[in-house]
Simulated scan of single mutants.
Amino acid sequence: MRAKSKALATWLALLGGSVGAHRFYLHGRRDVWAWLHPWPTLAGLVGVLRMRALGQDDHLAWLLIPILGLMLSQAMLAAIVIGLTPDERWKARFASDQPGGWPAVIGVVAALMVGGAVLMGTLAFSGQKYFEWQAEQADQH
């Protein structure tokens, strides 16, 4: 097995984790979990495109956009977990002698900021659309 860089894995999770870039790097093309990442992300992007094209009354977009937010949030969580893995454990698992160092720490800080913002935005959007739907249902009855 080739040695894997903890800093590179952290940044791959930060920048491309929602499509499984970090998993492809760490586990290769045969990793089933890596292949499951792009589909929900693409579904969420379809929701964004639908909302841009059809407006805020598109109920399918209401369902799909939070999926994108959750995929981005899980990618940030993966970056945090990878970046904070102790160097000894990383060495044992991925045969790497180089510590993560400051690049991994900076990646963790960035993932905390982005992940917090995305998760709060996803929760706010989902809550708003749920209560709008509830009000819509009450108006119909």
Rank of each mutant, 00 (worst) to 15 (best):
R23D: 12
F24C: 14
L26H: 04
L26E: 03
H27V: 07
H27K: 06
G28S: 13
G28E: 12
R30G: 15
R30F: 13
W33V: 11
W33T: 10
A34D: 09
A34C: 12
L36A: 08
L36I: 02
W39R: 15
W39E: 13
W39A: 15
P40W: 12
P40V: 15
L42C: 03
V48S: 04
V48E: 08
R52Q: 10
A53Y: 02
Q56D: 12
D57C: 03
D58N: 06
D58I: 07
D58S: 08
L60D: 06
W62P: 13
W62Q: 03
W62V: 04
L63R: 08
L63I: 15
I65H: 08
I65E: 09
I67S: 01
I67L: 14
L68I: 07
G69V: 12
G69W: 01
L70K: 05
M71K: 14
L72P: 00
L72Q: 04
S73N: 07
A75R: 05
A75W: 03
A78Q: 04
A79K: 09
I82T: 00
I82S: 09
L84V: 02
P86T: 05
P86E: 13
P86Y: 11
P86H: 10
D87F: 07
E88F: 09
E88N: 02
R89S: 11
R89I: 04
F94K: 01
F94M: 06
D97L: 00
D97N: 00
Q98N: 08
P99G: 10
G100L: 02
G101Q: 02
W102D: 14
W102N: 08
V105T: 10
G107N: 04
G107L: 00
V108A: 01
A110C: 15
A110L: 13
L112S: 08
A117K: 00
A117L: 08
L119D: 02
G121W: 05
G121A: 06
T122S: 05
T122M: 06
L123G: 07
Q128E: 11
K129A: 00
F131M: 14
F131S: 14
E132G: 05
W133R: 14
Q137P: 05
Q137A: 14
A138K: 12
